[in-house]
Each structure stands twice: as structure tokens, then as C-alpha cells.
Nucleic acid binder design. Sequence first.
RNA 1: GGAGGAGUAGCUCAGUCGGUUAGAGCGCCGCCCUGUCACGGCGGAGGUCGCGGGUUCGAGCCCCGUCUUCUCCGCCA
Length: 610
Amino acid sequence: MAELKAWQRTVTCGALRAENAGEEVTVAGWAETIRDHGGVTFIDLRDRTGVVQIVVDLSRNETSEAAHAEAQKIRAEYCISVRGRVVQRIAGAENPHLPTGSIEVEAREIIVHNAARPLPFQLNEDTVTNNEEMRIKYRYLDLRRPAMYRKMWLRHEVVRRVRSYFYKNDFLEIETPMLTKSSPEGARDYLVPYRLEPGLFYALPQAPQQYKQLLMVSGIERYFQIAKCFRDESQRADRQPEFTQIDLEMSFVTQDDILNMVEGLMIEVVDGLAEETGKTILHKPFPRIPYDEAMARYGSDKPDIRFGLELTDCGAILENTQFAVFQNVLKSGGLVKAIRYPGGASLPRSGMDELVNLSREFGAKGFAYFLVDDGGAVTRGPVAKFLSDEEKAAIVTASEAQPGDLVGFIADTKEMTNKVLDRLRRLIGDRLGLIDKSKLAYCWITDFPVFAKDEETGGWTFEHNPFALPQEGHLEWIDSDPARMRAYCYDMVCNGYEAASGAVRIHKPEVQVAIFKKMGLTDEQIEARFGHMLDAFAFGAPPHAGMAPGLDRMVMLLTDDENIREVIAFPKMGGGYDPLMDAPATVEQKQLDELGLRIIEKEPEKKQVI
RNA sequence: GGAGGAGUAGCUCAGUCGGUUAGAGCGCCGCCCUGUCACGGCGGAGGUCGCGGGUUCGAGCCCCGUCUUCUCCGCCA
């Protein structure tokens, strides 16, 4: 340990400047590059604060023979310490690209703490072009890149500011269990077998939802937690099997109180880091858009409002249209909606065909369109001849289409029309460069429906979550018109991502039971799954509401990444595989025996005989 | 579960119409080099073209199957 102490660094690499010239220092870090000129050797030494140039020069400096010999051995990513003097670089040898570029450290002594094998990939290469499995398998190396360190630092800084905000606002930070109970709704659970009674299982929490509501019953009043959540569902670029939520809940508050509290949080954190991230918030206060309006204007409940290109519902205009395709869709309760493609009239034929093909790929039956001529009239495009002049003029006006624009139509079921136009809208916005990447366009989507039709069973399921409080008076419609019911339920959306989700909760047992029953649960099922919640509500549960912004996506937006794995220290790959730890993995037979588990081998897939 | 892209040297990639010994850059190894900072120069090693089968005189390239991976759809209270 004496040696370790003797070689302890006195200063960080990135901190050295011209005014440090003459100082005796010890620096420590990793050799980033080595440039050996025979007589003189330069080593770029990197620690987390930056890079400083080490000069090993036997003839001119105080470099010891031993140090010179040691320097010959050093290769990329060796971990070393260097003792020496900070000196001004000789004239003309300064490096203006380096903050420490005006000085260098003349090495008197060097110690190699640890050699490094040749690396599986080079750290100075662009991270995104590297094989991701390799990056994750050797994540400890990948994280040595300054760009990755910066992401970890930024994430830390977000968390620090989140905590500071909630402490300031009198929230209590409380942890909730990781070993809990499976709830059959929602996502697939990760299960943990219970040793003492084989056949019983814990589940890892999909969210601390029930616990935080119980904390409100406990009178905590203001709770938050940086909470790990687990969902065994298919992966996406913005999803991981385990992820982190900024979970909060408050008692005796209204929906507005929660929205304002979270909006304040986002503004404080994002604005506070604006200098670091280059990201600014586009709209303050965040626009509040009711769900129905969001679906009408954008075809999505998570619209990217960094750009316009809002959709136009042509139902009223085409009420008496002679065009059979549109007529039939409207008669059968579907939607005909239009989107303008600015300048789209000058697309090559192949570009227009592509829109048709994409629409089909997205699930629509087709993509009809017409082109707006220079004079504003509509004479070209496949549907131009099927629509009357009045209809075309009204659509041009309603969609605010300009001469030279293409106006496209999707006519399908309500769901399909919106889904396809949402994707086309984002595609066109991206292609035309309408998106300002430096902006974070937050908005609130409010007034979600309570129920959604379950396509599989034909029954009713919850649109958002089963604990959301129906709005005042809406419970009356639970039998007559459940689709009409709206909840005090809200999402925070940013740049087309769902950034947070929450609701005013039901705190009366009888209301909760009514909702569960509408979802088709029997008394027995309700008791078994949610008996503890209903019990708790029966002991003076306060009105309460909450929300849960996703931390990973938030950081991802701040670092300008399109992949959540970039901002997670040790992420998993698709399928939940972790190549670093090689998890999941088999366990000892003894462990299985203890748990009373027997593995049933997967049946081999039926091979096709040629 | 489905669709599409990718898989060639340690890494990033090229490889034409199916044709001789599969290439480049970086990295690695050796030698040289006193002011570089993507140092430079000379030389060298390094390949189960993901895997299995097929077509063919001949397959990195064509066909079938399969695995891995990325993106998307389904899924994600």
C-alpha cells in the first residue's frame, strides 16, 4: 500500500493549464495514444477529466533511465502514473484542440499499474459504428470513451437535480420492494421462485404503482423514488427489460397540481443542463392537449409537436361525396383524413409510389392523393378526378395546402387511419427537415378514455391503467356508454416519445370495484388480486394522484440518442441477453431442486423436409 | 409470433456477371525515427467469408434451411 500512496495523483489530467507550469505533479490514468519518435516519446494520458501530454525525453529532460525503459513498454490503455514537472510546450508545439494543449508533463518517473491486452475495438472510433454486442460485452472499455463518460455524468446530473427538486418540495424518498406479487394485467412479469414453498413466486415490480398508493394511505402525502421497473416484453430501441422511473405520488392534490409539479421538475432539470446539452424546451408552459384532440390533429396520443403538418378530418367535407371508396369508409364509421406534403407535387413518380407502398406496409389499404397546381387548382393526382371541385377546394382550404403541395388521404377504420397518418406525418416531417433537433417539445396529453375495447375478448379493458379516476359524472355512463368515459389521466410527451404517465387515482373502494367489474373481473378475482388495495382504501384513503416520468428516455433525449442503451451503464441486448455477465444462465441442479423446479426442454421446432 | 436490414482479418468495411492466390483502412508484431498530437517510414503476421446442406467444372456471390444481431409491427396496466 505504501507504493500506492507514494504514487497517488496530486492533480487531474484535465485540470492542468499554462499557469501550472513549473509545478511538480503526479498524474494517473490510461495511455490513450503513444507516439514514439525514437529519442522522444509522447503519451496522451487520459483520466475522466481530460487528456494531458506526457513527454518522455531522455536527452533533454529529467527523465530517468527507468522511466524511459518503462515508457517503451506502454501500449494503448495501460493504466499508469507519471511523476514529473509541468512545463510550457516549446514554441509551435502547442495543441489548440486540447484544453491542456499549452503545457505538457515531463516525465521523471513512470509506473505501470497494469498492462492492457490489445483492445477488442478501438476507443477513439465513433461509438455508433461499432458492433453493439462487442460494446456491451466489453462495456467497461466502452465506458472509458469520453463520450460515454459524459452520458453517465449527464444521467447522474439529472438524477441529482431530480432529487434536489423533490427534497426542496417536501417529498420523502422511500424505497419499495423488488420482490412482490404478480399482477395479471399489463406486461408479462419476471418471476422469482419461492424456495420455502415450491409453486409460489414473487414477481419483480413492473412499477411501484400499488406501493406508492398505499404510501398515500399511510399519510406520507408526498413520495418519490428513482425506481427500477421490470417488464418482460419485446425489446425496442427505447425499451429495456429493466428501466428506471422517476416515480412520484401526492395526496390532497388535483390533476393540475401534479402537472405543474412535474412540469416544474422538467423545466428545472432541462434548463439547468441546457448549456451542457444544447437542448432547450420549445413550449413553456407545456401545451395541454386532450386525448381526443391529439388523435384528431396528429393521429397519435404521443405527437411530435416540434413541427406542424397537422391532419385534416375530411368527414364533413366529403359527407355527400360521389367517390365510392371514401363514401363507403365514411358510411361504415371509418375516417377519411388528409395530410399535406409540402412541395410534394414535385416528387418524382417513384416518390409518390413510395408513399402508397409505405401506407400499405403500415397497414392501410391504400394512399390516395392529389396535387395542388401553381394556381391553387387541383387537376392532377389519382383522386383529383373523383372529387368535385367544391370538395377539392374545401380540402385545400381546410388542410392549408399551398400550391406545389401534395395532399394525401388515408380512408380506413378510425384506428388504422390515425396510425398510418401518424407514421406518414413523422416520416414527412423528418424528410423535409422540419424538425429542430435542438428543441425538446414537451406537451401534456390529458383526458384519456377510461376503457378501451379489447379486440381479443370483445370486452372492455382499461385504456391507460385500472386505477385512474373517472372524471366527475362520467361514472354514470359505465353501462350505457363506457367508451365515452374519460379519466383524470395524463401523459407527458416529448418529441414523439411517451415521457411520463400518470393519473388521479381512485380512492373509493366502490368506484374501484365498479371499474374492475366492467373489465370482467369476478368478485373472487378482484379479492385475490386487489383485495389488499381495497382493504387499504377502506381505512380512510386520501384522494391522491401521481405520475412516473421515465428516466432513461429523458436522458436519451438530452444526449440526442435514439437508443436507450446508450444512456444505461450496463444494458441488455434484444431478448434480455447480457453478453458481459453472460446472463441469463443455467444454475446448479441443487438450486433447482431446492426450488422444486424441473426444466422442460423446449420441443424442437418442426423441421421442414425438402 | 411476423416483416425488413446486417453477418467477410481483432475493429470498420469493400469484394463487379459465379472464375486464378479474398482485399483496404485502422489495430497488432518487428525494425527505424528528437516535437508529435489520427506522428511518420520500412517489413511482417493475421481469414472455418456466421453455421449446415444444395446447384455448378467452379460459390464470399445463386438456392434451401438455421443461428446471431439491429430496426419496425404485434406486445409494452
